[in-house]
Design a binder for these strands. Structure first.
Length: 298
DNA sequence: TTCCAGGCAGTAG
DNA sequence: CTACTGCATGGA
């Protein structure tokens, strides 16, 4: 079977990206092995279970099971490239942190890419699921939704899934999700959003067709269940917008609090001020700040 | 026990 | 406009 090679840009570190996907949570959307990652990726011709690993010059993936036609290979290649944000030149970001003497923010994780959630529906669903609750519980809720709606693809004793389609979530009842420990509200938000996708009222094209990030945030915030935090999160993870700040984010607040040595959580203005030197790279700053939280306190 | 997690909408003043 | 509240659950 053919190897799918994706050239690695400068400042790309597969190990750092893999670390992010293996933080100790039970994420049902991929499986992290010693030196590789397995994931079930949807293509126009069916799902491909792929295994991706690091190579000398390129990221190297193989299709373990599923179609290997040119169209499927193209879809896999595009997915992996988006997933690890591989087309972006990070040199300007690293230049910025060096110029502003904040290289301690980037250099310990050199080559870490903003790990994306390329599918819009998956990203917006995950943003709703993750609201307010701790991440462990959020991953448990996601798994319950996925196991309810998606068909498992078993390989070597592990169940692999693609994220449920809007159609399958739109058909659920609030009661089915409440049985799985979703709150009434979370269940309503999720099903409502799925129904909007189904009705053609919400799509990647519709949002990406808007002129700029502020208009996209406005459009997303008009959706019930989506506030400023979720809108920015989704634009960062599914639309690869680089100027997103997840205001209200407890993780971001904790990270900036630590970096500024405050004894309270920073205000919105203090966070804006902290990110001011990094105009156009706010999303990466947020992602790297989250990363710092997993390091021991200094 | 109480408080808070990668928030949000609903309500009251 | 701002302030306050409930939400589901688990870990600190």
């Amino acid at each position: 079977m053919d190897l799918i090679s994706i050239a690695k840009p400068p400042l790309f570190n597969f190990e750092e990206c893999k670390w992010f996907l293996d933080r100790g949570y039970d994420d049902c959307m991929h499986q992290v092995l010693e030196t590789s990652i397995r994931k079930l990726i949807p293509t126009p011709e069916g799902n491909c279970l792929i295994e991706v690993a690091d190579g000398d010059e390129a990221l190297e993936a193989v299709i373990i099971t599923g179609p290997e036609s040119p169209a499927a290979v193209t879809a896999v290649r595009q997915y992996l490239s988006s997933w690890f944000d591989m087309e972006r030149d990070l040199n300007p970001l690293y230049d910025l942190t060096h110029q502003t003497k904040t290289s301690w923010l980037t250099d310990p994780y050199q080559g870490l890419r903003l790990v994306m959630i390329p599918d819009f529906f998956e990203a917006i669903s995950w943003s709703v699921i993750g609201q307010q609750i701790n991440l462990k519980f959020a991953f448990a809720l996601k798994r319950r939704l996925v196991e309810l709606c998606s068909t498992p693809h078993e390989y070597e004793g592990v169940e692999h899934y693609t994220f449920p389609s809007p159609a399958s979530v739109a058909k659920l009842t609030v009661a089915e999700l409440k049985e799985r420990q979703y709150s009434q509200r979370k269940a309503e938000y999720l099903i409502g959003i799925a129904q909007q996708f189904e009705a053609g009222l919400l799509s990647h094209e519709q949002i990406s067709g808007l002129p700029d990030t502020p208009q996209m945030i406005e459009a997303l915030c008009a959706i019930r269940g989506i506030g400023e935090w979720s809108a920015n999160y989704v634009l960062m993870k599914a639309f690869q917008r680089m100027d997103c700040i997840t205001h209200g984010d407890t993780g971001l607040q904790a990270a900036v609090k630590r970096q500024l040595n405050l004894d309270r959580k920073p205000t919105r203005e203090e966070i804006i001020e902290f990110l001011k030197p990094f105009k156009g790279w706010e999303s990466y700053l947020v992602f790297y700040l989250w990363r710092t939280l997993s390091d021991k306190k200094t």
